[in-house]
């Protein structure tokens, strides 16, 4: 990141011994979770279905209430009294683009969160335009949702969330129902929001190609954090990941196969470009 926030190492999300069990379930969905997330970072939470990823997202803005443990957001403990203030700090983009569109038009939908906060109308108009500009959807302001693609609807959902200026955005598998182009657009926008607006991003996904944007990766299994670290650290042990049903991105798979074939290639995590460079160098060495 090229922005100096002064308080860059501040802990923004702090989970202490958080446990949550759904009604009529014997096994907790999340058990004894301890997690610290620094401000302005991108954190990816990965794990297979049923590992507790979405439960984590819902606990963080009080849609679910933890059975035990503390959730502290920006220094404020999440309680029944503070939940509406916490929701101002934490926005969520959900999975299905059609199931989170409240307004009758794009601008109405973006304004929904602002209406809830009781923002005066002239201020709302400014904020709606600003938010739509951030996600390149300003020209669609008067369009009805059924005329938009899935990716465009998710961009509107992002605009609706950033209009209320939250510090944290949780993406609960927000790109899983989109086509590749839509996914790419959303990822670009989220990177922009992180670097330009300093928004902390918690991306819940099982698409490993999305993980490479993260500063920190958290691996969940059966409601527990089994691994946490940088992308390089997590991908360093691909066999472990594969056991969890999580396949590393394509470049990583190529790299592993090459190592298996006895070819001398760097075993640390490589981005697609780095991988291509590495292959060129390898070729010129031969």
């Amino acid at each position: 990141m090229d922005v100096d926030y002064g308080e860059i190492m501040k802990t923004l999300i702090d989970l202490k011994n958080v446990t949550y069990t759904y009604d009529e379930m014997k096994v907790p969905a999340l058990s004894d979770i301890n997690l610290r997330i620094l401000a302005h970072t991108w954190v990816a939470v990965v794990g297979v279905n049923g590992s507790g990823k979405s439960t984590l997202a819902r606990l963080l803005n009080g849609l679910l209430t933890a059975d035990s443990g503390d959730i502290i957001i920006d220094g404020m403990a999440l309680t029944a009294d503070s939940v509406w203030d916490i929701r101002k700090k934490v926005g969520i983009i959900f999975q299905n683009p059609d199931h989170q569109f409240v307004g009758a038009t794009v601008e109405d939908d973006v304004a929904f969160g602002l209406e809830n906060l009781g923002i005066p109308r002239d201020q709302m108009v400014e904020l709606v335009n600003w938010a739509l500009e951030q996600v390149n959807m300003l020209e669609f302001a008067h369009k009805a949702p059924q005329t938009l693609s899935g990716g465009q609807k998710q961009r509107v959902a992002i605009a609706g969330v950033i209009a209320t200026r939250p510090q944290i955005i949780i993406m609960d598998e927000s790109t899983s129902m989109l086509d590749p182009q839509g996914r790419q657009d959303i990822m670009k926008i989220m990177q922009y929001l992180q670097s330009e607006l300093g928004i902390t991003i918690l991306s819940i996904t099982h698409d490993m190609t999305e993980v490479i944007h993260a500063d920190q990766v958290v691996v969940l299994k059966e409601g527990q954090i089994i691994q946490s670290g940088s992308v390089e650290q997590i991908f360093a042990n691909p066999k472990e990941l594969a056991k969890l049903g999580l396949n590393p991105p394509f470049t990583q798979q190529v790299q592993l196969e090459l190592i298996k074939q006895g070819i001398d290639i760097d075993s640390k995590y490589l981005s697609e470009q780095e991988m291509v460079d590495e292959l060129w160098q390898l070729y010129s060495k031969m």
Binding site: N61, L63, W84, N116, L117, G118, P120, V125, V128, T164
Partner: peptide, 14 residues
């Protein structure tokens, strides 16, 4: 609810 809808009290209209 995640977007802060808490009934109509105190809402403004766009």
């Amino acid at each position: 609810e995640a977007r802060g809808y808490n009934g109509s009290a105190g809402r403004t209209k766009y």
